[in-house]
Design a protein around this nucleic acid. Structure first.
Length: 563
RNA sequence: UGGGGUGUGGCCAAGUGGUUAAGGCACCGGAUUUUGAUUCCGGCAUUCGAAGGUUCGAAUCCUUCCACCCCAGCCA
């Protein structure tokens, strides 16, 4: 099932760098900011960075890009670590940009001393005005020609906490008329009196991303710094910083100096989902979903709770590829990945979501039997299990119609259907309540049809699943559907109004075959003819079975118009 | 209108001047099937954003044009 390694452009670059001796090894890093939970987009980056290193015999660090204390915390760090591990990747080193604050400060001093950075007293609004526009060059700040000694003094005092937030910034002295706005004297440091979840209160100045990221890469000996397309303009600054500081050695990386190269790749979006952190926070805070791990979300914790396997997500990432253009992936690609994995690995069981009692009137009262059935139709190594059968069983409401069309291969008045692994039964009587709802079916069975046999050779097209009425386990089953009614909810003004009201259907009275109770809590099942299910990691207890539908089976009947 | 990018079937995506333009997903047929599942076979771009040009030969090279995305946070 594991696919051949896809040869995308980044892999070609890395292999080429190895082949021509530019690098002796490939060293990548996955650098999330710990300001939220990881989602599928991050999985793409994780699979890319860790996968490339794995593939080419290199290394990959997990690095927290934690330079904005106001948004970051330990809970996110732990969740991110957990998700990366869950996906099955091992980092060479666990790093934090905040561990480089001392080094970073030193490099800032170096730039000041070289006359390549200056302390500016423009406020945010003034700075915007001086920056110019997309089509007009900026103008130099009055502080731009501040003498080196004064810059150094001011910067040291910024660090010492002598100034208010926003009073000063440290800026790189590059070119206010650069066509690339990133290069118009970018801010390197800002004053923030904020507690850092890791560095505590040691600092009141914090380095900006553009200054931090390239240096972090260099310190760790990263060879290929992969990031998304929107950082393409930042690459010029990335290179500028590294070209203008002195890195004697890679302080925490491999020996020898390497100049990391930033290369960008396109993001992938999934239809019917949103990935923006802001929107996810809104969904959680306004209670539209159950939390960051709501099974309808494509956060990694959500997908995990939904029943997605790490393998399926890795396969998905391999399937969508890596290119230099942003893409929008159809939901079926993700679904195919998990179906493919679970088809091979999930144990088959019977589960009935909407139970309809079926009484076999000619089956001896008080008697019962058990059938020994395969846990997987093709994989003998998965063994067998016993399922109890008796006079009363539950079948799914969907498998009965009062007035079925001819194409409906299931049960209806006077129709015959096979109870899978058991006998053929014919429906003789339909019991309805005063509202006309079907409440019970009374059938007769043909004792000669045990175990799939039909001695007289008659064809029984319909086969349905069932569960013993006396032995079945009660369960709550949650069936999920896409969270939005439109393919690109993120583009709408009010994405909340696009939430699919049927994204969660709860079946509180489901009946499941008893063998499920013997399984471990992270086992996954195929309810035959229905879909793939797992136990809900939050609400499932021994005393109350709660299961989630990961994904349905392909259903050509539903497509024809059955449901 | 400045700069940086991208355009191959419904969605992804190989392809880097030379057989009939890989593959996956989706879709449509058909076979097998005690899951309308799986599996299996078959179909699905005379055409690569457009128009010119170079060449014996182009999705691949050149020119022009068009479309879309990103950049004016003391976020990352």
């Amino acid at each position: 099932m594991s696919k051949p390694t896809p040869n995308h452009f980044l892999r070609s670059i890395a292999k080429n760098d190895l082949a021509n001796g530019k690098h002796e090894y490939v060293y990548t890093r996955f650098p999330p900011e710990p300001n939220g939970y990881l989602h599928l987009g991050h999985a793409k980056s994780i699979c890319l960075n860790f996968g490339l290193a794995e593939d080419l015999g290199g290394k990959c660090n997990l690095r927290f890009d934690d330079t904005n204390p106001e948004k970051e915390n330990l809970e996110f760090v732990e969740s991110i670590r957990d998700s990366v591990e869950w996906l099955g990747f091992e980092w060479e080193k666990l790093c934090y940009a905040s561990d480089y604050y001392d080094h970073l400060y030193g490099f800032a001093l170096e730039l000041i001393d070289k006359g390549l950075a200056y302390v500016d007293d423009l406020n945010a609004e003034q700075m915007r005005e001086y920056r110019g526009t997309l089509t007009e060059p900026g103008t130099n700040s009055p502080s731009r020609e501040r003498p080196v000694a004064e810059n150094r003094d001011l910067f040291e005092r910024m660090r010492a906490g002598e100034f208010a937030e926003g009073a000063y910034t440290l800026r790189a002295k590059i070119d206010m008329s650069s066509p690339n706005i990133v290069m118009r004297d970018p801010i390197l440091y800002r004053i923030r009196y904020a507690h850092h979840y890791r560095a505590g209160d040691k600092w009141c100045i914090y380095p900006m991303y553009d200054f931090t990221h390239c240096i972090s890469d260099a310190l760790e000996g990263i060879t290929h710094s992969l990031c998304t397309l929107e950082f393409q303009d930042n690459r010029e600054l990335y290179d500028w910083v590294l070209a203008n500081i002195t890195i004697e050695e890679n302080l925490v990386g491999e020996k020898g100096k390497v100049m990391p190269r930033q290369i960008e790749f396109g993001r992938s979006n999934l239809e019917y989902t949103v990935a923006s952190k802001r929107k996810l926070i809104q969904l959680v805070n306004e209670g539209h979903v159950d939390g960051w791990d709501d099974p309808r979300l494509t956060t990694l914790v959500g997908l995990r709770r939904r029943g997605y396997t790490p393998q399926s997500i890795r396969d998905f990432c391999a399937e969508i590829g890596v290119t230099k253009k942003d893409s929008t992936i159809e939901m079926t690609v993700l679904e195919n990945a998990i179906r493919h994995d679970l088809e091979a690995s999930a144990k088959r069981v019977f589960g009935v979501l909407m139970p309809l009692k079926l009484v076999i009137t000619n089956y001896p009262e008080g008697e019962s039997e058990t059938f020994t059935v395969k846990n997987h139709p093709k994989d003998e190594s998965m063994g067998t299990r016993e399922i109890p059968f008796g006079r009363e069983v539950y079948i799914d409401h969907d498998d009965f119609m009062l007035d079925p069309p001819s194409k409906f291969f299931r049960l209806g008045p006077d129709r015959e259907v096979r109870l899978r692994y058991g006998y053929a039964v014919t429906c003789n009587e339909v019991v309805q309540d005063s509202d006309g709802n079907v409440t019970e079916l009374r059938c007769t069975y043909d004792p000669l049809t045990a175990k799939g046999k039909t001695p007289d050779g008659r064809k029984i097209k319909g086969i349905i699943h069932w569960v013993s009425a006396t032995e079945a386990v009660d369960a709550e089953v949650r069936v999920y559907d896409r969270l939005y009614t439109e393919a690109n909810p993120g583009a709408a003004d009010d994405f909340v109004s696009l939430i699919n009201p049927e994204s969660l259907k709860v079946f509180p009275n489901a009946k499941i075959e008893p063998s499920v109770l013997e399984a471990s809590t992270d086992d996954r099942f195929q309810f035959e003819r229905v879909g793939y299910f797992c136990f809900d990691s939050v609400d499932h207890k021994e005393s109350k079975v709660v299961m989630n539908r990961t994904v349905s089976l392909r259903d050509t009947w539903a497509k024809v118009g059955g449901k």
